[in-house]
Design a protein around this nucleic acid. Structure first.
Lengths: 205, 205
DNA sequence: GGGGCTTGGCTAATGCTATTAGCTATAGGC
DNA sequence: GCCTATAGCTAATAGCATTAGCCAAGCCCC
């Protein structure tokens, strides 16, 4: 039994590739082992079972996604940056559906965990998009959540083939970017008009 | 072996409840059978295996969600309708995470399938929200996709506990509704200015 | 009211999955 | 050139979905 020279990174990379090819759910230890020219139990010398494997794929995916985002944002700002970021995410999801799926079905990972850290870097990159709009600081968190929800939702629905109608998805995408861009622009111009949420503190000021 | 009086609907209902309690992934045939006071193989007399069960849960969830949406939209329009719809979805997802999860991990279902039909009804309800804004018809499809992506993304992220920051999620939610409402209002006022997508047809006109 | 067919429930068996235990031989440090 | 840590192996266990084949409960119709 010759040493194959495996290490955790190689196992995770192979698993990620396999996930993109056959779907995350179909990545069995046996199949992955075969891909690596090894028997299934040997994988446990490198990763700590399937849950751990999923977590590592998720970290890989978030890291790659963040790299792609940073590259796309290089030298852009404002609407350009927004469009670039918005395009990057669905592109990644379509190219690497298995990897991205791993980021969704995470089985918890403490606040200090590597998944959260990798996710935080992605959030930082998205924040960079917002920086160009010079929002009121009080609006920034909300806008960030808007972008996250929107990009995530759009990417997932597109990857799942959820848009049945025949109107071109790319066209919707451009429309959507324009919509958000205009919205953020006027938000920046009229900073933080405090919405009277559900009746609290109306009246004065 | 007394007849228990099961039928497909009862099995699906039990499975949906179980999914909400223990998570969709942990709904095993054995556990479901135990819940129903029956042995696992007996379930196959009512349901065609696990894939079929998932599909049926998805249809149930989409139907319930649509009912909730219609109820919430009764007598409302414009921003009121938007807010009501937007609130309904995350509420449903938080209350029925297992059921909603089933709608995401669907393993395809032909264009005529019941899942697609149920999804279409939800889309119709969302369309009703847009009706109040009197958008240019050319904008409607895009706006619909915006709402879907946004609501879906927000609901999933909230249910997954994806919003780490300490700023109140409810506050973000109100902010987000205001953002979309303002955006849709101005879109209605300046109908369908054709975006020059990616460089095509600029110049004249 | 009884005979027969439909059918919902059962047990037993198969095959796939992840995972653990314990062995062996290899590669690198000295 | 040995010694040790360890990458890989085989064998075994346990949980899962699913199929095959049996049996009795209940309903329809006479």
């Amino acid at each position: 039994m010759p040493r194959t020279g495996l290490d955790p990174a190689a196992v995770v990379a192979a698993a990620a590739g396999l996930a993109d090819e056959v779907g995350l759910a179909n990545v069995t230890m046996g199949l992955l082992a075969k891909r690596l020219g090894v028997r299934a139990p040997s994988l446990y010398k490198h990763v700590d079972g399937q849950a751990d494997l999923n977590r590592r794929i998720a970290v890989l995916a978030l890291t790659e996604l963040d790299d792609a985002l940073r590259a796309a944002l290089q030298g852009r700002s404002g609407r350009e940056a927004l469009a670039a970021a918005a395009r990057t995410i669905p592109t990644y999801v379509v190219e690497h559906p298995g990897r991205y799926a791993a980021t969704i079905r995470i089985d918890a990972d403490g606040p200090g965990g590597p998944i959260v850290a990798a996710g935080a870097r992605v959030l930082d990159s998205l924040s960079a998009v917002l920086a160009g709009y010079r929002l009121d600081p009080a609006d920034t968190v909300h806008a960030l959540r808007l972008l996250r929800s929107l990009f995530h939702g759009f990417a997932v629905l597109e990857a799942a083939g959820g848009f049945e109608l025949d109107t071109d998805v790319g066209e919707s995408f451009e429309w959507l970017i324009g919509f958000v861009d205009r919205g953020l622009t006027v938000t920046a111009a009229t900073p933080h008009r405090r919405e009277h949420h559900a009746g609290h503190e109306e009246g004065q000021r």
